[in-house]
Amino acid sequence: MIGYLLRRILGAIPLLLGILTLIFFVVHLAPGDPTARFFSPNVAPEVIEQMRRNLGLDQPLHIQYFKWLWSFLRGDFGYSFGQMRPIGEILPEVLWNTVQLTMISLVVIFAVGMLIGIVQAVRQYSIADNVLTFLALFFYSMPSFWFALMLILIFSLKANTAGWPIQFPASGMTGVEYDYLSFGGKVSDRIMHLILPATALGIGSAAGVARYMRGSMLEVIHQDFIRTARAKGLSERTVVFKHALRNALIPIITLLGLYLPFLLSGAVLVETIFGWPGMGRAIVDAILQRDYPMVMATSFVIAAIVVAGNLLSDVLYAVVDPRIRTE
């Protein structure tokens, strides 16, 4: 098991190096550079030239590449032109915000998705199954940004004008009066701000998990050992949750790694809509400001999270299915 783990981790290193190289060349081969936003009749060309020299942009591309790679590997991510702060300071903040959002929606996705999938599989071809299948398809086919807007429209704006008892804030991580709240108030304020974005982010993937779970559960439920379990006189509950669920979970675990890129992609949109100060918004802002070091650092961190997620799901898979390890 340890050997398998080591092999997988070592295999990820060239992958990460390749990702770094790809990011660097995509960003640097694009026309325009960070000094472009200082172009104006009031700025002398010499000043721009000096700026380029200070930033090291006048050097040949391969020299820039190795310099950047070397400092990156030592943990120095550079300096953000857009926010005028070292990236090492910005990253932990935005990363933490995104992690909060994605972790909550990950929990929601798997809890809701698996529950729905199990219900559907146990009651195959019933009305509930058909309705849930259609709902899953509906949410699975829905663009998350549109769903986010609809959530805001209904649960925030309409709820506000109609004076519903429950209203959700439309944007931000905390309310205006956050600093004056008691501890309990702070927690509930944060949770209220999390609900809409987490729902918008998670619902599509939850529907996907439900679809997989249904298929996986059905496959298991029709096998002989389930019939044996029933014949032994075990209660339906034990059969479903103990015998069937455990075996149906194996393919679901790989989804954990597969949904991470989806979630991070979705986070870009959802964070932009809900004004959530996380990675997704940071990368969009950085790109619009042509803040190269920030673009490279954020996209690398996102890619690294995805690689780590895949690694995690492979390892989990090996834990539940011993046949994988000995391959």
Binding site: V26, P261, V295, S299, V306
Partner: peptide, 16 residues
Amino acid sequence: LSFPRLVLLIVVIALF
């Protein structure tokens, strides 16, 4: 595959 597709897309499209 390790890039979220949307992130890769916005990086490339916004820069060009």
